[in-house]
């Protein structure tokens, strides 16, 4: 270790700081080449929205995850690494369509999402419920009980609640349109404030 300390000056010289532009340029090139080689199993980006910074992630199949900041984006990416693949790259291009549609939604120029989805993060009953959520039209709401009946399992009210709470694609798959039977909002993965904002946005249209 001694020799390293003695040669700090040389070390410093050879390790001249790499400027951020150079790295950004190289990262961009990596995104393009990796995408061309089919090596990006999960591409992601973050966008600003009225409900805070959103993480968008997509597999080659389609949009696989939308996450609120309060879910901790680093942790969400780690989970994606475990459940889908560690070949995860910040590569905004694949998210262009989803980002544009979400922007249009928040500026009231879009009521229905038609970006391709990858539902592979959900299974069984949860996935069944999530598949039916887009049937609730823009500006409308249903109760957890309504949803349980809709999927043919009227007793599974609590399970419907769990399915909504674990929706991997909030906003795009509109779990925010499901309320308690008494009309109060109930829980939301993005927090109560976000749910209210989305409901108000749609009600005002």
């Amino acid at each position: 270790m001694n020799d390293i300390r003695h040669d700090d000056d040389l070390s410093a010289l050879l390790s001249t700081p790499v400027d951020a532009d150079a790295l950004a340029r190289l990262h961009h090139r990596l995104e393009q080449e990796a995408e061309q080689a089919g090596l990006v199993d999960v591409a992601y980006t973050t966008i600003d929205s009225p409900v805070g910074t959103l993480l968008l992630a997509a597999t080659p199949e389609g949009l696989v995850r939308v996450a609120f900041a309060r879910e901790d984006h680093d942790r969400v990416l780690e989970t994606l690494s475990q459940k889908i693949s560690s070949r995860i790259l910040r590569s905004p291009k694949r998210l262009d369509v989803a980002a544009r549609e979400i922007d249009e939604y928040f500026t009231r120029r879009r009521q229905v999402f038609d970006v391709r989805l990858d539902l592979s993060l959900s299974h069984g009953f949860r996935r069944l419920v999530q598949t039916h959520l887009p049937e609730i039209a823009y500006g409308q709401t249903r109760s957890y009980r309504d949803m349980a009946e809709l999927v043919g399992n009227p007793k599974a009210v609590r399970a419907v609640g769990t399915a909504c709470a674990t929706n991997p694609l909030p906003i795009v798959v509109p779990c925010h349109r499901v309320l308690r039977t008494d009309g109060t909002p109930g829980g939301y993965v993005g927090g109560l404030e976000a749910k209210t904002l989305l409901l108000d946005l749609e009600a005002a249209a």
């Binding site: 700081p17 790499v18 790295l23 990262h27 992601y44 990416l77 690494s81 560690s86 995860i88 910040r90």
Partner: peptide, 18 residues
């Protein structure tokens, strides 16, 4: 647990370039 590859690029990109 294997961390996302993006973290590897972020952490080691500059050193590898040097």
């Amino acid at each position: 647990m294997k961390e996302p590859f993006e973290n590897v690029v972020a952490r080691h990109g500059a050193t590898v370039l040097r």
